[in-house]
């Protein structure tokens, strides 16, 4: 049973399309990163999966049922962006309220608050909470009732590095127990090590989806080799020129190294050539990062949209 499955989903708002032809699925025990600039349709996709809206076209099935069905929503945890809880209530009161609504055991309340690091603050009113503390409370709320599908919108906003690491460790544990997790974030380097698959949305359509290796293949972006010469940089340069690869850019860095951009399929051949020549003292390889892939897929046109930054 998939955590959710979007099949050819389109959504229109006042006749202008917000999403078109989205096919996306999430299996249990998987962390999916959902990326895109502001207005790309991330929030709309999430709302469709949560059952807050009906798609104009296509089907949305969630946990083997209909999106928005009470039997389904009971097993979904959701952390919205920027949630302000009831300021006059304490963390414990708020979580108890939500636990009752979800039909979760009230014994979970103090446990979860301890788990997210609010153990000392659970009896303080939330108007005294910092942004990070509110975020933790939101997280505890999302974890009520052992969700099978967890959707987190910018979960690390306001969290310090230690808390962020704790959060990702927690998410890994949940994933290993079989929870399907969706992560929306703009802090791409932060989430890169933790996601199993990424989906990139632009202008309401899915530009790319898959694990990082597949995305790298699809993007076909050059790999950067950083070479430390034994003798001189120019000798290395000549050697690479002779190798006749279609690799373009070569840059001499200030530290006397040579940076070469090479197509992924020519990487091994070039490496073997330079290694055999004995001209290389050290080599390091930089794969395109999630951020590079993201920028590649949203294109330069997309850059204009990135100014808003969430």
């Amino acid at each position: 049973m998939s955590c959710f499955r979007l099949e050819n989903v389109s959504y229109r708002y006042d006749k202008s399309p917000v999403l078109h032809g989205i096919d996306l699925r999430l299996e249990p025990g998987e962390i999916l990163g959902l990326f895109g600039h502001n207005g790309a349709g991330k929030t709309t996709s999430i709302k469709l999966i949560l059952g807050l809206m009906q798609p104009t076209q296509g089907t949305v099935s969630v946990l083997g049922g209909q999106a928005g069905d009470p039997q389904v929503t009971q097993y979904i945890g959701y952390l919205p962006e920027n949630v302000m809880f009831y300021p006059q209530l304490t963390g414990r009161e708020i979580l108890s309220h939500f636990a009752r609504l979800k039909g979760a055991s009230l014994r979970q309340v103090p446990e979860l608050l301890e788990q997210v690091g609010l153990g000392d603050a659970m009896d303080a009113r939330t108007k005294t909470y910092s942004k990070g503390m509110r975020q933790r409370l939101g997280l505890a709320q999302a974890l009520l009732g052992k969700p099978k599908l967890l959707m987190l919108d910018e979960p690390t906003v306001g969290l310090d590095p230690v808390a962020t690491a704790d959060l990702y460790r927690l998410l890994r544990d949940l994933r290993d127990e079989g929870t399907g997790i969706v992560l929306c974030s703009h802090v791409l380097p932060g989430v890169e090590p933790y996601i199993d698959r990424a989906a990139i949305l632009t202008e309401g359509s899915l530009k790319a989806a898959g694990d990082l290796a597949a995305l790298r293949r699809q993007a076909n972006m050059p790999v950067t080799l950083s070479l430390d010469p034994v003798h001189s940089v120019s000798a290395l340069e000549k050697l690479i020129d002779r190798a006749g690869t279609s690799s373009g850019l070569m840059i001499k860095t200030d530290s006397g190294r040579l940076r070469v951009d090479v197509q992924p399929r020519e990487k091994m051949a070039l490496l073997q050539t330079v290694m055999a020549s004995g001209e290389v003292a050290d080599v390091s390889i930089h794969q395109p990062s999630l951020e590079d892939i993201y920028v590649h897929f949203i294109g330069s046109g997309g850059l204009a949209h990135r100014g808003g930054g969430q």
């Binding site: 929503t73 949630v83 302000m84 809880f85």
Partner: peptide, 15 residues
């Protein structure tokens, strides 16, 4: 709605 809890409540098993 202004506090953001309406959206959250609507994701709960609550019509």
């Amino acid at each position: 709605e202004e506090g953001g809890t309406l959206l959250l409540l609507m994701t709960y098993p609550l019509s």
